[in-house]
Amino acid sequence: MVQNQTCRKETPSQTAGPYLHIGLAPGAAGFEMFARELGRVIAGPRCEGERIGVEGRVLDGAGAPVTDVLIEVWQADALGRYNRPEDEGGAPLEPDFTGFGRVVPDFATGVFSFETVKPGPVVGPGGESQAPHLNLWLVARGINLGLNTRMYFADEAEANAADPVLGRIESAARRRTLIAGRDNTGSLPVYRFDIHLQGATETVFLDI
């Protein structure tokens, strides 16, 4: 026998199921339960930085859109600071910035879109710089444990080349699954980012 471990195991995960909107985005389930639904605004209109749109779909292994997915976004502001007291780095954060978003696609088409500001580079685990990115977490029916991934920006080629996470992905094709292309044709620049749960173009998911 050895000593009892004081580290206790995490509560096991279960799928969020098809009706996750009731709890996490009730407006999408069909009723405006809360005056202020969490995650509706990532960066308000007064935020510093370049305003951008992000648009895409989550696709399953058969190529069908996952229409009942919920994506959570956690991102830094334009100066690369997360909305946390320990990450203010001296300068106070903007009051209009939450950095947290909840994104639900159109139930018919599976297309999601949201607006935010482009984040700045953030500090990495060893003090090095990480390329600008959005942290994403996906839950849906059929997903037993939430999936973590990141979205990087195609117009940040130099920063992406030096990014410690992208640098750990050996295959260039796999690396590209995390990089969103930029479309400048509209009034707002839009990054297009499809997430593939499975198949030849499966997105790189992270064990964070």
Partner: peptide, 22 residues
């Protein structure tokens, strides 16, 4: 069956992106 990633997850060292949150 069609919603499960088949490839290994990429392990990474935690940074403020992982150890902060809303």
């Amino acid at each position: 069956i069609t919603r499960s990633p088949a490839r290994p997850l990429l392990s990474l060292a935690q940074s403020p992106s992982e150890i902060t949150g809303p």
